[in-house]
Amino acid sequence: MGNDRNSKEFTMMQRFIEDRCGISLGDEKAYLLESKLARILAESSFGSFEELYAQICTWKNPDMIDDIIDSITINETFWFRDKTPWLILEELLLPMYIMELRDGKRGRARIWSAACSYGQEPYSIAMCIDHYLESYGIRDIKLDRFEIYATDISHTVLQMAKNGRYDNISIQRGLEEPYRSTYFRNEGRIWTLNEKIRNAVRFQQFNLLNEFFSFGIFDIIFFRNVLIYFSDKLKKEMMVKIKASLCPGGVLFIGNSELFTDYSTNYIADQHKNGTYFRSKG
């Protein structure tokens, strides 16, 4: 039995995936891809990966592209993941934004959840802000002063996120009281997010390989557990693109288990309660 991972066909597929969505597939993920692509090949009428690859390059078949991307990405399914970004938001950033909003130094605060998956991250952002405003009795600043954008490459996943419905298994992953009872309606095993929070997030399909400038400038970008998929070269490019999308002093959150070592050209790393965040150098 030979090892197919180094075969020409596999290399072609690796290159295709990297070209189309920037995802870099190392050998450690090779066996995942191999079995998933075998399915796509078996389902199609093509006899070999070469034929399949040739067709995919010229094909604009969103189902197949979606399939491939869905097969190799792991969608995040935790609420308030890692805890520390939310502490930083509540204790450092929100007090500052509210003061600036009151002083007229800004009209709104803009936040982007890139690779938002099933919606847990952008909805966690919205709940965090709303809960903060409620807890501190802030009546003059409403949730709609915070624009929350959420993007993902997968159409299916985005639609699920927009629906704002979660089952009894996923609802308990990181979602504690009072958030669960405050923001969700429960019917049997289904939990539906309230309209206020759902409406606070604008969802859009987006491939991170594309240019970001159409989204404008953000105060905070959540770019968590996405960089792990990219090649080193693309990681560097991505960090430059992110910097260009952040206002001076804007904040970047990456995953707590991710490493970002050569940040100093464009960012300052800060710590708060064991959580790291990166401020864009003005």
Partner: peptide, 8 residues
């Protein structure tokens, strides 16, 4: 698999 993945 996660329940979301199955739903998808």
């Amino acid at each position: 698999f996660t329940s979301e993945e199955l739903t998808k």
